[in-house]
Write a protein that binds this DNA or RNA. Structure first.
Length: 341
DNA sequence: GCTCCACGGGAAGGATAGGCTT
DNA sequence: AAGCCTATCCTTCCCGTGGAGC
């Protein structure tokens, strides 16, 4: 059934990118100076999730490296490495310069110094989910270093510059931008089809079924591929020789539930208590939530800390925060699952 | 309009952990 | 081996802002 599981996994970069010719060309042109050893401009890759921003950034950087041997690239997901320190650390790690840096007790300035002194081949730094960086001054500092060319991946420019200072904003307003639109259904089908051809047995799934998945994914390739992956695994586990319509239908909510469950698993005990309260009540007002939380915990955190938790959980899509002011309510997302369908 | 609730930025202090010195 | 030092990360406190509801 499954001949190559890798191609269905998230983060897999295919040999050929589909339906993004214009964007590939654009980005390749931007990075072209690197082939002569000159620095390339800092570039923003903007668009909703699952439209191929990350994939294309990696793809283009990889192409470049194959073409010009003397180029490095380093990928950092700022969602997981949201502090300045961690992001810097990851970049250095990729360059193999962290041997004698020990997690604690190495000042941030020292990390910058290492980068400044880096004299290897020019390096493309891909900062994925760059809007998640807590301290945007990192962007400013990296922008100053000619050895490093930054590709900043984010949903919206507004979020990226949200709490950034003037210096950075003015420095980056003039930089290159590559914008991405949602895929339409046909495009998603052919993206999935390419993966199916190299990852599943012949005839494991037909085009109509892929179209069903594409429709459910709402233009998001990541969602589409995760449904496909869930379906393939399901068929594999029940010894089916092909993916049935029933499996496809079941995989659509299943894929979403799986992701949700995974996110819930990462919560700390305090966050989980908050999550449970919200789940039980479907919707709850902030003051009510704080109070209930304090009742349930022996060592409750302050309201301010709880707000930090809640905003994180909202960003992770574990819960949903609605309203900006006195109308704020926290509600469970599992309830909105059904409303969306 | 005015009030009040809630949010979230920022500074300060605490917890934690590893390196360095003695 | 123990104790000091210094870094990050987390939590708390203080407070300005803003919007909904009256």
């Amino acid at each position: 059934m499954i001949t190559d599981a890798r191609v269905l996994r998230t983060g897999f970069v295919p040999r050929e990118v589909e339906h993004r010719d214009a964007e590939v060309t654009h980005l390749t042109e931007i990075l072209a100076p690197l082939t002569d050893g000159d620095p390339a401009d800092t570039t923003l890759l903007l668009g909703p999730s699952g439209v191929g921003k990350t994939c294309l950034a990696k793809y283009t950087a990889e192409q470049l490296r194959q073409e010009v041997l003397d180029v490095e690239y380093q990928y950092v997901n700022c969602w997981q490495n949201f502090s300045e320190f961690r992001t810097l650390y990851r970049i250095l790690e990729g360059l193999g310069k962290t041997v004698d840096i020990h997690r604690q007790s190495t000042p941030r300035d020292e990390l910058y110094e290492r980068l400044r002194q880096y004299d290897g081949p020019p390096c493309v730094v891909i900062l994925d989910e760059a809007d998640q960086l807590e301290d945007k001054s990192l962007l400013y500092h990296l922008h100053e270093l000619p050895q490093f060319s930054m590709l900043l991946v984010a949903n919206r420019e507004r979020e990226l510059f949200g709490n950034a200072d003037e210096r950075l904003t003015s420095r980056l307003t003039g930089c290159e931008r590559v914008r991405f639109d949602r895929y339409d259904s046909d495009e998603l089908v052919s993206i999935m089809d390419a993966r199916v051809k190299s990852g599943l047995e012949e005839g494991a799934i037909d085009r109509d079924q892929l179209a069903t998945i594409a429709d459910a994914a709402g233009g998001d390739a990541r969602v589409a591929l995760s449904i496909l992956r869930t379906a393939a695994r399901q068929a594999h586990q029940s010894y089916e020789s092909r993916i049935t319509d029933d499996i496809v239908a079941a995989s659509i909510p299943e894929a979403r539930a799986e992701r949700h469950e995974k996110d819930v698993d990462t919560l700390t005990p305090h966050q989980r208590t908050l999550y449970e309260i919200i789940e039980e009540r479907d919707a709850v007002s902030p003051s009510e939530l704080y109070e209930e939380y304090r009742d349930r915990m022996d060592d409750p955190k302050t309201d301010r800390t709880v707000r930090n938790y809640l905003s994180k959980m909202d960003q992770y899509d574990v819960i949903r925060a609605e309203g900006t002011s006195r109308d704020r309510t926290y509600r469970s997302v599992s309830e909105t699952f059904e409303n969306v369908e």
